[in-house]
Design a protein around this nucleic acid. Sequence first.
DNA 1: ACATTGACCTGGGAGC
DNA 2: TGCTCCCAGGTCAATG
Length: 272
Amino acid sequence: MPELPEVETTRNGIAPFVENQIVSQVIVRDGRLRWPVTADLNNILVGKTITAVKRRAKYLLLETDSGTLLIHLGMSGRLRVLSEAVPPAKHDHVDIAFANGMTVRFTDPRRFGAVLWTKQDPASHPLISHLGPEPLSDDFNGRYLFDRSRKRQVSIKTFIMNAEVVVGVGNIYASESCFMAGIHPQITAGRLTRKQADKLAECIKIVLGKAIAAGGTTLRDFRDSEGKPGYFAQELLVYARQNMDCRQCGHPIELIRQANRATYFCPICQKR
DNA sequence: ACATTGACCTGGGAGC
DNA sequence: TGCTCCCAGGTCAATG
């Protein structure tokens, strides 16, 4: 479900309710996520103040002055801010309750998500230390993309979805960015020209920025922390639009599979 | 080092 | 209605 814009939308939603609040209780109803939820999380967090809610790649970082709670939403994860009186439903695996009466509730039907405590600096955590730059930072640009892609044999669409190259670009925004840049998703990464690298890096920033502004993309079940959908689905140029007319040239959008993921593109606007 | 594939897990929709 | 099959927004680990 969530790519960078959806995670950022979630961060924006929970931060005002959580920052500077004191944890009163943590309830783990089902700790069987991608990795087991850190044991004894209640004892670890009770009484601690969440000093900031940050994001690195698709991880949400709830910081305290003695460690950080890493939360990943996986494919189907969601965080909501609720009154703690709201009864839990199926798949509501973890509650973090605060002294102000609000609860952050982690829901994840597929259980690909993660809730992990670390005392380390999160930047050096094994799940994070190997990750590439943030796409919206100045560290990510055409020169970087060009340099990193030299001699790489994978398709450009698969390449930009590699989190060691750049984080946050998932399956929706990879197709969208290639279309906006006029780049065929199947071209070999190593054959990207410098000009194309500039264009693609720029388009990734534009697409992600617009998606964040729209509150993310809701295809089926993404909801923000208040339960509202994201509106970027209305602005999608190619994703989930197979056989529909290209918004730019009118030719039917095509659907192929790359690395076992759906790719959408326009064969006229995106030449090989 | 790089590329490819399977695995994790549940629910929803299509087709019969 | 109900069964089977396929698909899904992520990413790690194993394999060659």
